[in-house]
């Protein structure tokens, strides 16, 4: 366990100045600034909506694009960056000749990838919330302060995080095995597009493709909200695609460990 904690600390230390880490902070910040600017300039179109609807529209601007494309792409990039730091420095041979169990090194990297994804989504939720409050101050005609959206927003991002664990585990394994960017990126992109198509077509078995899970999670939220008599933002955190995503993550994590354990460093 000590080896795991030390490896995790090392992951943070060596990636703290890289794009992998910075992207988790800068992407939500940049996107929030852009969308907020758009809402600020078009605030007059929102004033007639209820406070809840204003929040839904505002957060929907992020979540729609995030569920379908942005989140899978961000995960592909982050998991590549975390492993590429070792490929680039030819560090695997050095890491695996240290007196640290291989599972510690492997699982610390995996947990760090999960942490970056969680950090990014938490920051998204936080920045959306902060942007709403700031917009309300700048444009008093908006009603963001009349409805408490924080719980829903964090629950929604938690659901997105859980839905993305399957993609993350697969992309993590790809970028662990391949040093070049093209293979994990190419395959990841292809599967993401395939996921979008199958999810949009409403294919019955789309939930078996991990790359559809964020999109299916958003679809299931929308379905529950629309079916709700009062159209309130209440939805289940754990749905079919979430369970499937967690199962894929667990199985892929275990497979990845055995691949690493038995793999020779050439």
């Amino acid at each position: 366990m000590q080896g795991f904690i030390l490896s995790l600390q090392s992951e943070f230390y060596k990636t703290r100045k890289t794009l992998a880490f910075l992207s988790a902070i800068l992407l939500p910040l940049a996107l929030c600034l852009m969308v907020s600017a758009g809402f600020y300039l078009n605030a007059h179109k929102m004033v007639n909506h209820s406070a809840e609807m204003q929040w839904m529209r505002f957060s929907g601007a992020f979540i729609g694009v995030m569920g379908s494309l942005l989140l899978p792409l961000l995960i592909i990039f982050q998991s590549f960056s975390i492993n590429n730091i070792e490929h680039k420095a030819e560090m695997w041979k050095s890491l695996f000749s240290l007196p640290i169990p291989k599972w510690s090194i492997y699982s610390a990297k995996f947990v760090y990838a999960l942490f970056l994804n969680a950090l990014c989504l938490t920051l998204f939720a936080t920045f959306i919330l902060a942007s709403g409050i700031i917009l309300d101050l700048l444009k008093p005609e908006l009603k963001f302060n009349e409805f408490s959206f924080a719980g829903t927003l964090f629950k929604l991002h938690m659901k997105l995080f859980l839905a993305s664990t399957g993609i993350l585990s697969i992309q993590f394994l790809f970028s662990l095995l391949w040093a070049d960017f093209l293979k994990p990126m190419g395959i990841g992109l292809l599967l993401t597009v395939f996921g979008i198509i199958t999810a949009n077509l409403g294919w019955k078995y789309a939930f078996t493709i991990p790359y559809t899970h964020p999109m299916l999670a958003i679809n299931s939220i929308m379905k529950q909200v629309l079916n709700n008599k009062n159209q309130q933002m209440t939805f289940d955190l754990m749905s079919k695609e979430i369970w499937f995503s967690l199962a894929v993550a667990t199985v892929t994590f275990v497979i990845g460990y055995f691949v690493i354990r038995n793999r020779s460093v050439k």
């Binding site: 060596k14 100045k17 890289t18 730091i85 680039k88 420095a89 030819e90 560090m91 041979k93 050095s94 000749s97």
Partner: peptide, 14 residues
């Protein structure tokens, strides 16, 4: 054991 195999493995951004 301390080891150095082929080219030194170092993080170039650090």
């Amino acid at each position: 054991i301390g080891s150095l195999i082929e080219q030194p493995a170092i993080y170039h951004h650090l």
